[in-house]
Design a protein around this nucleic acid. Structure first.
Length: 559
DNA sequence: CTACTTGGGTAGAGTACACCATAGTGTAC
């Protein structure tokens, strides 16, 4: 039986091909919009289909209904099949290249017969693109750079993907009874934001039997005590074999790394001995350091008080700050999001939908803000759970936020973030951010660098100046927990802490499920040694209210 | 293609920016 996800994918694929073929852009848009409507549809999709009730979903008209019903009935779409015939498969891949859209790809295909990335790269290198009408040297170079980046990025996966992979490996390895003990190690154990390989340490009882059983699960190569599985995931998998407890612990430390960290501590790997990691650190005259913090950056920190092990954990989080709802581009109602927060043990929340200039995200004009605020108060009264009236206000090109000061003053909590105009020189971007930080109503600088891991570089700005300004202006810094962002980069956390900055770790959730992404932000915070006391989400309700009124007066709900 | 308004027809996300070409298009957010 097809499910919601299959239909969304089908509609998006149809839109892509229509776009490539130069179909009417509103028709293409209708398919894209239809996919979005279904993505946001809250009810039971399968039953809506079987009850023939799709016409109740806004954005799904006659045409799309026919496509969906057909797909449910016969498992395919005749429209999609027809569209697809004669379109090479690589076209989809080409759409993934930044700077290349349907129109340009169409020209490349019809003029030069380019139908995949390999051919495109070759044509660029032969200078054939620059000769086409509408193309030039700059475009050609940009495409080459993008292809290069794609190749680099394909060697990594994001943290949550690595975790997913690891889960699959663990469930398969658990079938092999010669494995007495198993532990994740390497980049994933250190909570790195991107991972280039998966690593496990195994304690094995019988090597021959183990290898025999392993070959039933994986195709592997063996070299010394290390087994590598190359073509199972997009990144390689390494199993490090040990046969005694002591060996297991030593290997765990060595493979956890990082290499630079261990050599910086002058860890003599031959001398490593002990029942567990704590003992091993102790025997070498070091305090135990949690895996996440075992990085080169740790060794560069001068202020001793910053080097205590991070005590951040999910159970200390009381405030769910910065999340979205159906009002802007979220997939759940405010009411549902609050239920999600309550279920997860949060004690209060601040809804921060997009502001009015975020048109692409259905941002809120003043009138709609008022409506959401009203609802927030209602929910607060009904559920006896504090719902702060927040906003994620766009930082405009020159640094002002996109509501008047008067209007801004009516929010309980203001996140300021950049969502457009990323390409500015460092000086301009820095002063743009500075102005936003100096705005008296700004409480939090959202995803400070704008990076999208493995996809978009951070914008250029003077990070030190910005972190200094956050400290000076009492503006907290976000560690956006979305695995695509993990922004602020953990490498800057020690510097910010030294300056006395406060932090806020937020899932930027666009659905109930995404609230759980907060754990990746916590891992990232732990990498910088962050303490609960430095994270405003760990404040209790009274402390958080106090934080909100540290600079400006704010009117909370009347008791 | 969809929604809305009207009973057949029309509008539909807005905008900055890079690039190529020297006025306009394509793309991304």
């Amino acid at each position: 039986m097809p499910d919601k996800k299959d239909i969304i994918e089908l509609l998006e694929n149809i839109a892509d091909i229509m776009d490539f073929k130069g179909e009417n852009k509103f028709k293409v848009g209708a398919y894209r919009n239809g996919a979005l409507s279904i993505r946001r549809f809250e009810g039971d999709f399968a039953s809506a289909v079987s009850q023939k009730e799709l016409d109740k979903i806004k954005g799904i008209g006659k045409g799309l209904q026919a496509v969906i019903y057909e797909y449910f009935q016969i498992g395919e779409s005749s429209l999609f099949k027809e569209l697809k015939s004669g379109v090479p498969e690589g076209i989809e891949q080409l759409l993934g290249i930044k700077g290349l859209g349907a129109k340009k790809i169409n020209i490349l295909y019809s003029e030069l017969g380019i139908s995949n990335i390999g051919e495109l790269e070759y044509a660029c290198k032969e200078n054939r693109l620059a000769l086409l009408k509408g193309f030039g040297e700059a475009t050609q170079n940009k495409i080459l750079t993008e292809i290069d980046k794609m190749k680099q990025h394909s060697k990594f996966v994001l943290l949550h993907t690595a975790e997913e992979f690891a889960g699959e490996i663990i469930s398969r390895l658990q079938l092999i009874k010669e494995i007495k003990k198993l532990e994740i190690t390497g980049e994933l154990r250190r909570g790195m934001e991107i991972n280039s390989s998966l690593n496990f340490v195994l304690l094995i009882s019988d090597a021959n039997k183990f290898l025999k059983n392993l070959s039933a699960e994986f195709k592997y190569e063996i070299s010394g005590e290390m087994i590598s599985v190359k073509e199972y995931f997009s990144i390689p998998l390494f199993l490090h074999l040990t046969y005694t407890e002591e060996e297991f612990n030593r290997t765990l430390i060595i493979t956890t790394g990082s290499g630079a960290f261990l050599s910086g501590l002058n860890f003599n790997t031959h001398k490593i001995k002990g029942k567990n990691e704590e003992e091993i650190f102790k025997s070498l005259n070091f305090n135990f350091i949690i895996p996440e913090m075992r990085e080169e950056e740790y060794l560069k920190v001068k202020k001793k008080s910053l080097l205590a092990n991070s005590d951040l954990s999910e159970k200390e989080f009381r405030g769910l700050l910065h999340f979205h709802t159906l009002y802007s581009d979220g997939r759940n109602t405010l009411d549902e999001m609050i239920d999600g927060a309550i279920e997860r043990g949060f004690k209060y929340a601040a809804v921060c939908d997009h502001s009015k200039s975020a048109i692409y995200a259905n941002g809120l004009i003043e009138e709609r803000v008022l409506k959401e605020k009203e609802e927030a108060e209602k929910i607060y009264r009904k559920k006896n759970f504090y719902v702060f009236q927040g906003i994620e206000s766009d930082i405009l090109a020159e640094g002002s936020l996109d509501y008047s000061d008067e209007f801004l003053s009516t929010f309980h909590f203001v996140v300021a973030s950049i969502h457009s105009r990323f390409t500015m020189d460092e000086e301009k971007m820095t002063s743009r951010l500075l102005k936003a930080i100096e705005n008296p109503y700004t409480d939090l600088l959202g995803h400070p660098s704008g990076r999208l891991l493995l996809s978009r570089d951070p914008y250029k700005f003077n990070v030190r100046k910005i972190l200094d300004a956050c400290a000076a202006n009492n503006v907290a810094i976000e560690i956006n927990a979305h695995p695509r962002r993990l922004d602020l980069d953990w490498r800057w956390i020690y510097y910010a802490r030294e300056k006395g900055c406060l932090f806020s770790i937020n899932p930027d959730a666009h659905s109930i499920k995404e609230i759980d992404l907060i754990k990746y932000g916590i891992i990232t915070g732990r990498k910088g040694g962050l303490l609960n006391s430095e994270v405003i989400n760990c404040y209790d309700l009274a402390e958080f209210k106090k934080f909100l009124t540290r600079k400006v007066k704010r009117k909370f709900y009347q008791e």
